[in-house]
Nucleic acid binder design. Sequence first.
DNA 1: ATGCCGCCCGTAGGGCGA
Length: 268
Amino acid sequence: MKPELHQKKPKASIAFSTWNVNSLRVRLEQVLTFIHEHRPDVLVLQEIKMTDDIFPINAFTELGYHVAMSGQPTYNGVAILSLKPLQDVVVGIPGYSDPQKRVLAATVDSRRIVCVYVPNGASVDSDKYHYKLKWFEQLLVYAKNTVAAYSQTIILGDYNIAPSEKDVHDPVAWQGQVLVSPKERACFEALLALGFSDAFRVLAPEDKAYTWWDYRMNAFKRNHGLRIDHIVASKAVIEQAERCVIDAVPRSWDRPSDHAPVTLYLSA
DNA sequence: ATGCCGCCCGTAGGGCGA
């Protein structure tokens, strides 16, 4: 065989994905399809909207994944799937009592993975908005402590914050609304200031790309979206980053989640 | 626009998300 016919072995990479599925009950087959197509090393899910006792563990273990979940009835709920074993699983933010299941952490191969579902906030004058800001203060403490203990920390999930005007299809229309307010953006900036980077923005500084499109008003077809799902990684992780991909294809499927999955690829 | 769509619970229609 001529040397040029030898296929160069593709460079291995490690993939970390996040996806707000808006009901794992409804979206299970789509999650399985995503896994078959991409085989991420780690996949974290938000808004599973189910209790732990009905979580479809077997559907994932059959595919070789280890599973941790923190669910509740009706709302919220997060999960971590990993091809390698999950160690030191921690539910919620330590020291912060919150009945809403929004945070789940585990270690995979010396990397600390934190799956987050940040509160939506409803509107900027609501109690839910104040809950969101107070909640994020607790996340900042948690993030600071976590990265101090694990130089390789990845905090990924649905942040419900569009960090900049580039992350909003129509900044004028969204001005003054929840998800884009200065206080929420200050929260996100404060997280980055702890030694983290917004992986997508670091790897694609100028791209206008969205991770969420409203179900209403044909928002996806018109690309009226926001970038609110993020992979926030410590410097030691960013050093290994190859690319960060927002996969809009699942948003085009029948009965889709309103969010797209996001994947960070690290060099192995 | 207290709207739009989709999911949950529960079996009608209100709560909630973003």
